[in-house]
């Protein structure tokens, strides 16, 4: 039986490390990734490292999708079976994925017992909100309080990243400002920011070194952080070194991880970002 009355559910795109999932009793619905015609459940049928190893060599570009509503129903059932009275289900926004629509569809079956929330974010931008909510649930917070805490975390989360494979991102069709000629003739590394489900361009440079330097400057302006993560797509050494460099911005250990396949499929390898949760109270 679970220790809290409120169960917290998310999907695998939130990038919450396994140990944190276990520690905070977070239920995770796997995203689906399709590679050369075959569907895999993210983290179950294929590991992140396998995914990124295969990504550059696919015959057709990888695509991603939400699992069937049945997956969600199963996870929600499991939550209620283990003693939860209510569920908070936090997912990436509908502007970037159909995940949250599917979860809403599944939630209808449970009346008002399942609260579906949009994180407006990606990767640990969502994950940090989920972790804050789970922490509160664990300490016995009420539904009202948990929703407030999640909403505050949503306001305090920051995500900036460098995207270097614009071709893949353009193909995704998810970023409308990227359609016109950007990086067609001269390769560019874009600096982007995600806020409220909107991806916006905050700069562009030509080298990764410069991009990472600029991201670092922006992160330093954020002020003290309670959580920090360095998501990357298949550049672990670089990400690890970057994390060590930025560690001082945050009191808790920096999380370094291969970013979710839901992002990786659209930005290719070589991307890196900074996700922070502002320390504010």
């Amino acid at each position: 039986m679970r220790s809290s009355k409120v169960a917290i559910v998310t999907d695998s795109t939130s990038d919450i490390p396994k140990d944190k999932q276990d520690e905070l009793e977070i239920e995770v619905v796997p995203a689906i990734v399709i590679m050369d015609g075959i569907s895999y459940r993210d983290g179950l049928d294929i590991s992140r490292s396998d995914f990124y190893e295969r990504l550059p060599n696919l015959k057709t570009p990888a695509s991603t999708g939400a699992p069937s509503p049945l997956f969600f129903e199963e996870v929600y059932e499991k939550g209620f079976d283990s003693g939860a009275e209510e569920i908070v289900s936090i997912h990436l926004p509908e502007t970037l994925s159909s995940m949250i629509d599917v979860s809403r569809q599944a939630a209808m079956k449970f009346g008002d017992k399942v609260h579906v929330i949009s994180s407006g974010q990606l990767s640990l931008g969502t994950g940090f909100q989920v972790m804050e909510a789970a922490k509160a649930a664990h300490s016995g917070a009420s539904m009202q309080e948990i929703l407030q805490i999640a909403s505050r975390a949503k306001e305090n989360v920051r995500l900036i990243a460098l995207v270097n494979n614009l071709a893949a991102l353009k193909r995704s069709g998810r970023i409308n400002w990227l359609s016109a000629g950007v990086g067609d003739l001269l390769q560019l590394k874009l600096l982007v920011e995600i806020s409220d489900g909107v991806v916006s361009r905050i700069g562009q440079v030509r080298t990764r070194t410069k991009a990472m330097g600029q991201l670092e400057l922006i992160a330093k302006e954020w002020g003290p952080l309670s959580r920090l993560a360095i998501p990357h797509s298949s550049i672990p050494e670089l990400a690890q070194a970057y994390a060590e460099k930025l560690n001082h911005l945050c009191q808790t250990p920096t999380i370094v991880m291969d970013v979710t396949t839901a992002i990786g499929a659209h930005i290719g390898t070589g991307a890196i970002g900074i996700i922070g949760l502002l320390e504010k109270d």
Partner: peptide
């Protein structure tokens, strides 16, 4: 060529 590059930027 240079013109096209500046155009794309």
């Amino acid at each position: 060529g240079i013109a096209r590059i500046f155009s794309s930027l």
